[in-house]
Design a protein around this nucleic acid. Structure first.
Length: 471
RNA sequence: GGCCCGUUCGUCUAUCGGUUAGGACAUCUGGUUUUCAACCAGGCAAGAGGGGUUCGACUCCCCUACGGGCUGCCA
């Protein structure tokens, strides 16, 4: 009855409701839609589901856009506001009325609440069945009404879900959902179908909390004679303890991850692998992910967030990142983390130091800590651990070292014999010499190679720091 | 309560009726080392439970347990 989806250009969409920040689970949903569309030369659309005026805020929309932008998920065309399309939704509701697939219901919310309370009192649960479903229009009162879907009361609705398989829902378990509220605004159930249809969405990839909704939505597609999209309901993300991810697990907002210093490429990689797999592929770029990503690789069970693996993945991406891009992203991190920005001089030094710190860090705070030596200016203040290696003896060693550093070519090859000689003179291993050098140069015990640090900060600065420490 | 979905090492997962059930992260041991990170070698570690179907089930079916979702004039 419908053309094979493969022959149509793919159109996916991410449709968050603007009631807060971009949730990490929403971010992954967006990512899957983005990967699927981008990997097939398709279109990825963004629609804000803001028909609930009570809860929707422009701030939330802005936060969601920021989150997506940071994650690097670019959408095609303008952001669609669902609320702006309310007249179209109402139009479709009335078309359903005209087709006889929907009806006007004059039951008040009080009546419905009373009906439910009564059922509950009897210890049962019953779907509300509107008395207006087959009422004679001649009996219609002059009162506000909602437009309800005239849902089939028997039979079954079958969802062919790419991820969940064939899901059968008995129509008797579904009620006549409201499509148009009494104030003529659409409900989610109607709006989502109308918009997806009008926007030409071919694949609906969303959280499996919508799986049941798909049955009701399919009824609307049928009622309007529209082609049903390919459904793909993906499992939600859980916290490390296997429970639904909530605030008590820590970070749930995408922007919080930016503030914690995870690179966007690493986040994308990690999130892609969370609930999706392609053989043994673990570390990959987004371009590679686009090539590999498919709906059949999505798992059916909820996945737990694992920060250790996130960090490991991010470490790989920091190491393989382009230096200029990395520097730019670090500056963005500083802003997000509300940390002081880099001065032009610091930026310059950090750029030069990147080669020796980027493969030692899993997050930006860690990278910055490793690059501490390049970001500070004299006098270097040693932290507690490294300070211990600056005792009287090692100060003497540093003092004897500085003169030998005066007239040398500032390369590792030239420096190496000098430091080795000093160590030999004092009958100590290089490790014993490196510790005070680290303290003097960086004030830290965990740093890049002492040679790299010397090379990055230069001859004058090196000698000055060593003299400071020896004094 | 009703309906729907799920359940492989601690975690993410591969397997799509026949494998010593593979990989990655984490962890442990040894090696390397200039601290950290990394790297090399190796170890530990899994099909929720119970019934079927089948020559043969992680894989198909049913039940139970556990987890999740939906059940709104929320999305």
């Amino acid at each position: 009855m419908s053309r094979p989806p493969e022959t149509r250009p793919v159109v996916t969409r991410f449709a968050p409701s603007p009631t807060g920040y971009l949730h990490i689970g929403g971010g992954r949903t967006a990512l899957f839609n983005w990967l699927y569309a981008r990997g097939r030369g398709g279109t990825f659309l963004l629609r804000i589901e803001d028909t609930d005026r009570e809860r929707s805020t422009p701030e939330a929309t802005a936060a969601i856009l920021r989150g997506l932008t940071w994650l690097g998920l670019d959408w095609d065309g303008e952001v669609v506001s669902q609320f702006a399309r309310k007249d179209r939704h109402a139009e479709v509701a009335h078309q359903m009325l005209a087709r006889g697939t929907a009806y006007k219901c004059f039951s008040t919310q009080e009546e419905i609440a009373a009906f439910r309370a009564e059922a509950e009192a009897r210890g049962t649960y019953a779907l509300f069945q509107s008395p207006w479903r087959d009422a004679d229009p001649a009996t219609f009162p002059d009162a506000p009404y909602v437009i309800r879907m005239k849902a089939p009361r028997s039979g079954e609705t079958v969802i062919h879900d790419t991820v969940q398989g064939r899901v059968v829902i008995q129509n008797s378990t579904l009620d006549d959902m409201i499509c148009l509220r009494s104030d003529a605004t659409p409900t989610y159930m109607l709006a989502v179908v109308v918009d997806d249809h009008d926007m030409g969405v071919t694949h609906v990839i969303r959280g499996d909390d919508h799986l049941n909704n798909a049955a009701r939505q399919q009824m609307i597609y049928d009622a309007m004679g529209w082609e049903i999209p390919v459904w793909a309901h993906i499992p939600l993300i859980h916290g490390p303890d296997g429970k639904k991810l909530s605030k008590r697990h820590g970070a749930t907002g995408v922007e919080e991850y930016q503030a914690m210093g995870y690179p966007a490429a690493g986040m994308r990689n990690y999130l892609t692998r969370l609930g999706w797999a392609h053989g043994d592929a673990e570390i990959f770029t987004s371009a590679e992910a686009m090539q590999m990503f498919d709906l059949s690789g999505i798992g059916r069970a909820p996945a737990r967030l694992d920060f250790k693996k996130l960090e490991n993945t991010c470490g790989h991406h920091i190491a393989m990142a382009d230096n200029a891009a990395l520097l730019h992203e670090i500056e963005g991190f500083l802003v997000a983390a509300k940390r002081p920005a880099l001065s032009p001089a610091q930026k310059q030094l950090l750029a030069q130091a990147l080669y020796c710190v980027k493969d030692r860090a899993k997050t930006f705070p860690e990278l910055l800590e490793k690059a501490h030596f390049a970001l500070i200016s004299r006098p270097v203040v040693a932290d507690e651990v490294s300070g211990k290696s600056l005792d009287t003896v090692s100060r003497g060693i540093l003092k004897s070292l500085t003169p030998r550093l005066q007239n040398v070519r500032w390369t590792k090859d030239a420096l190496e014999p000098i430091l080795n000689d000093v160590a030999a003179d004092y009958g100590i291993g290089f490790g014993k010499l490196a510790a005070p050098l680290r303290a003097a140069l960086a004030g830290r015990s965990a740093t890049p190679s002492v040679y790299d640090m010397m090379l990055v900060i230069g001859q004058n600065e090196t000698i000055a720091r060593l003299e400071d420490a020896a004094a």
